[in-house]
Design a protein around this nucleic acid. Structure first.
Lengths: 348, 348
DNA sequence: TTGAAAGCGCTAACAC
DNA sequence: GTGTTAGCGCTTTCAA
């Protein structure tokens, strides 16, 4: 069926012009009911399928969205991506995946190169290495939605949760439980404006509000937000003269790594050290113990990102960039509350 | 720059025909060195970028591979995908992702629909719901590589590890440690020829070889290979009159779920119950305790899948379908060996 | 409401 | 080696 059936073939069979067939297929212009029926029958009879490539070339649209993430095997991104793919498919778009490995050059290249190639109509971008300026210097005609901890310059939309508040709440949770030696794992002092710094700010803010000092030796920097980063950092913290009795981890992966080290050292969670994570990935619901975490509304983020991007794509005039705050909430689990809790909460 | 710079523009500036420019850009036919230089200069000067869409339409190729997986947020697939994307990019291909949610209808649709649309040149497919027959009934002109537990009918390549042997080895590992009440979680009796059944076969084989009987009450079926499936199944096993002292789980996620239940019940791993998983996902390296697991060579699988698919795409004549066995190995960790082991092995 | 026809930008068969 | 040119299959402007 249908290897080489073209619009023209259908037109010939239906006795109309290809223009009319095109209209019927796309449901564009009004077509007389009788004509439509005749065309539709020809389409069915021949098993006609529009050639997407040709359509793209003629229309200048590709029907594809690109999603650029640093790492695909990071559960947080995988979960987000899943939502994005669903949302895009519902609206007739395919999703092209690009993985930058956090490399700034690659990220930059992508933003400048892709658009001219018409390979995708817009990009949902979750930058890691890229500095704020690079985003502004991109090809402005490329519809863009940015995820994570950026601030829009007005030429694109930005969706993220309120990192500072979320981090403050996470830290307060620990302080409220009576912990007084609360450490933080995941700071990245050399990346301005990024998640890490916002989270550190929230961590400090919680201490300020509680009238407690921050011990600088408790703020640990890590290259990434990995399990191994968490494991290493935790080991470092435990080797301090006065180890912490609680740790706020900047990702659930970091928390899982920390848990790993604690278990290896024979320490109990939360009795000896309480742990809070960030992202609410599934792993952290089933870990031992399950991890108290900051849960961003991933579904909302995915849906909104696609929705906003399509709006940009389909609106001919420039759309003003929006700052969108997705909701978040703290989910208390055994890593801070102890095993008194029942089965792990399902999260978002 | 370069919004509307076309081949023709370049040709005009360089004083050659578009044919020659095309040749230079694509490095096809031999071009005189002097001409090439002149053309290259014009390309640079104008900032010319080929329009991929037009190229695709003219050449009939899209330069895209589709990867179809059941679930993106399953770490195993995410890790595999990462390798596939890398391998594809190196060869100049983009990767389009499709997620079927294990729905057979959707999987089928994809195999029949996609190719005619020319949206992708070939598919790497990891089926779940699809029966063997559906694969054979597909559009035969679509280059296809299948991952997982299928058997090729000769019209596509199939890459997978030897599930039966791997499962046998995993079970033997448990038996060798002296465990005599070894259960299995993940059987799926109603899906013929799939992973689950092969793994059950390996599990039984190990018992046979050891001259031990299989207790049917120890073979637990689960709908998927999830954490929650593992958690539930483990709870069921523990409620038996005579609970097992070891469990072979058909995925690491299942193992993590089982671990979760064991921890909740206050049982020790491996003292009370030893656990073996399957897939070697990163989660299972950092869990508490780290999980002994069957590690498929994911990198090899990803590389080979892309390589074979491209061979199919670029070879005009039909390529005979190959059965490719990827290597695997059992990685012993604390969930069977106890905490005597050092830091978790890095795996593949 | 529908038809005719001009591209979209590139590739590749055919000729020189 | 290089130029000419006819498409790839669709969308869309312009007329009718």
């Amino acid at each position: 069926m249908a290897k080489g059936v073209t619009l023209r073939d259908v037109a010939a069979l239906a006795g109309v012009s290809s223009r009319t067939v095109s209209n019927v297929v796309n449901g564009y212009a009004p077509v007389a009911e009788s004509t439509r029926a005749r065309v539709q029958q020809a389409v069915d009879e021949l098993g006609y399928r529009p050639n997407v490539l040709a359509r793209n070339l003629a229309s200048g649209r590709s029907g594809q969205l690109a999603v650029v993430v640093p790492y695909l095997d990071t559960p947080y991104f995988a979960e987000l991506l899943q939502g994005i793919i669903r949302a895009a498919r519902v609206r007739g778009y395919n999703v092209l995946i690009d993985q930058t490995d956090g490399d700034a050059e690659h990220e930059k290249l992508f933003l400048s190169r892709g658009s001219q190639q018409l390979l995708f109509d817009g990009v949902i971008f979750s930058p890691l290495g890229l500095a704020q300026t690079d985003l502004t210097e991109r090809d402005a005609s490329l519809p863009l939605v940015v995820l994570g901890e950026r601030v829009s310059d007005g030429s694109f939309d930005h969706i993220g949760i309120d990192d500072v508040s979320a981090s403050r709440e996470a830290t307060e949770h620990l302080l409220d439980l009576g912990r007084r030696r609360v450490a933080a794992i995941g700071d990245q002092p050399y990346r301005t404006g990024e998640a890490a710094q916002l989270r550190t700010r929230g961590y400090r803010l919680a201490h300020e509000r509680a009238g407690l000092p921050v011990r600088e030796e408790y703020v640990i920097s890590t290259p990434r937000f990995n399990r191994s980063d968490g494991a290493t950092a935790m080991a470092h913290l435990l080797d301090l003269q006065e180890p912490p009795d609680a740790v706020f981890c900047y990702s659930d992966l970091v928390a899982l790594g920390a848990l790993h080290t604690l278990a290896a050292r024979g320490l109990r969670v939360p009795e000896d050290v309480a742990i809070v994570g960030y992202d609410d990935i599934e792993d952290a619901r089933y870990s031992n113990p399950p991890v108290t975490t900051v849960s961003p509304d991933k579904r909302m983020i995915a849906e909104t990102a696609v929705e906003r991007l399509l709006k940009r794509i389909t609106t001919p005039t420039p759309v003003p960039g929006m700052e969108i705050r997705a909701p978040h909430r703290l989910i208390p689990r055994a890593s801070t509350m102890g095993p008194t809790l029942p089965a792990p909460a399902t999260g978002a």
